[in-house]
Design a protein around this nucleic acid. Sequence first.
DNA 1: GATCCTCGAGTTCG
DNA 2: CTCGAGGATC
Length: 675
Amino acid sequence: MNDDSLRRQLDELCRAINDHNYRYHVLDQPVVSDAEYDRLLSELRAIEEQHPEWVPPDSPTQRAGAQPSARFSKVRHPAPILSLGNAFSEADLRAWFERISRVDERVRKASFVAEPKLDGLSVVLHYADGLFVQGATRGNGEVGEDVTPNLRTLRSLPLRIPVDRSAPKPPADLFVRGEVFFTKADFEALNKRQAEEGGQIYQTARNTAAGTLRQLDPAITAARPLNLFAYNIVSAHGQAPTTQWATLELLRTLGFPVASESHVCKSMDEVLALYEQWKASRDELPYEVDGMVVKVDDLRLAEDLGFVGKDPRGAIAYKFPALEVTTSLQDIGVNVGRTGVLTPYAMLEAVEIGGVIVKQATLHNFDFIKDKDIRVGDRVLVKRAGDVIPYVIGPLLAARSGKEKKYVPPKTCPVCGQAVEHLAGEVAWYCVNAACPEQLVRNVEHFVAVLDVVGMGEKIVIQLIQAGLIKDAADIYSIKREDLLKLEGFADKKADNLIASIQATLTNRSLSWAITALGIRGVGDVVAQKLARKYHDLDALSKASATDIDDIEGIGPSIAQAIVDWFAKPTNRNVLKKLKKAGFWPVSQPPKKPSGAQPFAGLTFVVTGTLPAFSRKEARDFIEDLGGKVTDSVSAKTSYVVVGEDAGSKLERAKQLGVATLDEPALRKLAHKRK
DNA sequence: GATCCTCGAGTTCG
DNA sequence: CTCGAGGATC
């Protein structure tokens, strides 16, 4: 790249970042995610490092933030409230360590304090003779906004220190730095309340915390449970501790809430190990954490290290991979499901979220698009939380250029072209063409997936259909070895394996799985099990009347009718006939006699996360064998939630509802105890 | 009629 | 995991 274009890029980056700063700090309406902002900033830094002579006076690297808005009176901080440099990888962190070690050899033997980096809003609290007299936002680092009345509403903020009167007295003038934030549970509860009252739904906890703290009416702030953690002493008239760890201890002694995760590390290796640990368990924390702040514990050493621009060298923020990013929604596509449901999905400009590149995300249904007012061309916020599947939270209205296009749902099936239908009172739109090729593919896929035919994924199914080898699910049993060998990509071994895998379904498959495999709308494994208990084979089920099926507990008129309708269709009758002929005809097994004790009788369990010794299915079998019930969602009726590694929202919910949790050993112990 | 619970369906990437 | 909808319960 030549100098001219590099310089243009520098100017463009400055302009963009200044704009983002304004939107973030003044408007509370960011149009890019933190991760993207950080990326722009590090690009800018890289150029400025190469060409320090180019750095413009208004470069965002030359100040710590943006101007405060005019609504609140201004407060000058006693010392500049610094920002931190970022590290995004182990290499970045080690490079930082090497850099500061070269500045001062003592660093090599130094200890570090690791603190969780909360996704909140920085504040400075002023205590005069132990009394909370003023609190301000960070603002641009030198001047912030006076939000004292709002801060007073925070329950965790001590209005007088020390809270414990017997503790030592604090310095006459103490300025404490802290972070204001919502816990995940409080934020969810707030949104739930907003939804009930028909109010606005907030997208991100951080922006809402910022908005809440900057309410002109403190009553509004008071009604929203903001939290505080203190982590720094900005100024204490020479009476501040000399290490960061002692600072945290002093703050705790005085009665400030301090993040309990904070930890002293004796080496970089310890820091890195702790980082990995935090990263793995970050979903379990009650608040959003977007990284780890690593500080040189010895504060005088940290001071000696000096600054790079406005960032102190003695501390750095080591970020977690972002879980929430913004990207642009390039188009909306539509999938056709097994039941004919049309499901829209977002085609996104590729972005990295939590370590993987995401290009697509479901949009659930057409109402979702309409309710969130998602338009093609929008910048959207995409989240990938403790789960794996990314989803679109909503558009960033502030980023609208006017060129975005409203989305019009298709009137016809995107695959077969037949008109789509919509049942009154239902959200979903259906392609009702029984011969729709997409539905056939999905149907066969479902059939083989339920019966556990290995080596038959989407690609192979499509290939077999296109080759004319199968016209419905039952046709898999008539596939010949020599037919497969003619297909591209099939040699002896692959063909043999597939045939063997199909043949394996003829033995040892229960009636309930067979019923599930048929793919009747509303019939999954639970309903199928109930049906298999009452009807001894598929013939018996096919002859049952709707009222007869309706009698089963847990099955109502609408599913009963769907079952009757399915068996009434000639094409499906034909499938049944073929299955019988092929020898796929499971019958009800006599109900298993409860073997031994039933210590879990009457108890309902939910299993979440990865258990150490059990697979999910083994855990389920274990519980059911002992007479317990296993369901998928946590409710007030759940007796125990069995928690494994990487447990997500179910654990959250269990805590909220006060449902008891068990780990695997505790589960075994419970089984033993109740015998 | 409202509310809670449970089930099913579709879902991303490597 | 999220959402919608069916079913049970009050």
